[in-house]
Design a binder for these strands. Structure first.
Length: 305
RNA sequence: UGGGGUGUAGCCAAGAGGUAAGGCAACAGACUUUGACUCUGUCAUUCCGCUGGUUCGAGUCCAGCCACCCCAG
């Protein structure tokens, strides 16, 4: 069996590579690049835009060191355009609608299990593999997605939109072990470039930096009022209703107000049309609770449900 | 320029002669499937509108000045 593993330059996929090899698979590592700051005009608030080595290249080098140490072949592929068309476009549209999207779910559906899978097959691989904390279970000829053994690190959420067919083409070597075990193995193997590397979280391609500034590259700032939903009075000003998310507390800049209790203010409603951000006082305010939700695009690829 | 009130960190606000509470915001770190939430930490070292005075000692008492608010004109 020939498998192409997505090697990111982090500790998880590095250990996944080792485990696959140990299990007898012929492993080819591949570093994927989905974001090009220059091509995508990602300049505002980008702390590394002028650096001679961007963080992605550091990750690539770390990945190469891992592949080298494990004696595995290393490849590299760009999906800049695909990412923009299938993931980032959706991402921006959601923000423009006043929602808070999760691009990583689409990245899996449309990139890793799309062009990347195709790329693997073109290069003679039967399957792909990922360092996700997720479990694939085959039963009676069917393939199911199970939560990872490490419930704390489970990443099946990110895989929630892939199909049963796509799932059949992928292995998750970390499905049965804990993060602490992953770190332990990395140390045991002396994978110096990744063994103590900090976990990356959140939107993967952006890196450590001011998120609002990042969004300003694509969604222009537009100042508006922040209003108290209980009294309908103006409490402050925001930079654009799209930059905030429901339930958010930080970044509103509302201090103490004469005569009003001070328990912090939380975003409870976004009026995109009129560019008004509504806030409620304290985390227990009734406006922050809801007993209904609109859900669509449910992916019932697991017929055990 | 009659009367009353207020002036403490970016904001709100305790304090009441003995050596500046607390909250919000902000910032930093941890955690993280919402760069969100949450948690932890840091935030007025002679400073409490200004200037003098009383006192061993004043944000707290006194005097003058300044600023703002309210009522009356």
């Amino acid at each position: 069996m020939k498998v192409m593993l997505g090697l990111s330059g982090g500790v998880d996929s590095a250990v996944a590579a080792y485990l696959l090899k140990k299990q007898g698979y012929e492993v080819i590592c591949c570093f994927m690049r989905n974001w090009d700051s220059m091509a995508n005009n990602d300049v505002l608030g980008n702390p590394t835009v002028n650096d001679n080595q961007c963080p992605q290249e550091k990750d690539y080098r770390d990945a190469c060191l891992v592949a080298d140490k494990l004696g595995l072949k290393m490849m590299r592929i760009d999906f800049i355009k695909e990412y923009w068309d299938y993931v980032f476009t959706y991402f921006l549209n959601e923000y423009k609608l006043g929602r808070t999207p999760n691009p990583d779910i689409f990245c899996n559906k449309y990139i890793k299990f799309g062009p990347f899978l195709d790329f693997a097959k073109k290069n003679g691989c039967d399957m792909i593999a990922m360092g996700h904390y997720a479990k694939r279970v085959d039963e009676n000829g069917k393939t199911y997605l199970y939560k990872a053994h490490d419930k704390n690190k489970d990443q099946t959420y990110f895989l929630s939109q892939i199909s049963s067919e796509q799932l059949k083409s992928c292995l998750f070597p970390l499905g049965d072990i804990d993060k602490t075990e992953v770190r332990r193995i990395a140390h045991e193997l002396n994978l110096e470039s990744v063994e103590d590397k900090k976990d990356s979280t959140g939107v993967c391609f952006i890196g450590e930096r001011n998120f609002k500034e990042f969004l300003k590259n694509y969604i222009p700032a537009k100042k508006g009022k922040i209003m108290d939903i209980a009294t309908n009075t103006v409490l402050g000003e925001h930079d654009g209703v799209m930059y905030y998310t429901l339930g958010q507390r930080k970044g509103l800049g509302i201090g103490g107000i004469n005569g009003l209790p001070t328990h912090g203010w939380f975003v409870c409603k976004k009026d995109v049309k009129n560019n008004i951000l509504y806030v409620a006082s304290g985390s227990e305010d009734e406006h922050l609770f809801s007993d209904e939700a609109v859900i669509n695009n449910i992916n019932l690829f697991n017929d055990k449900l």
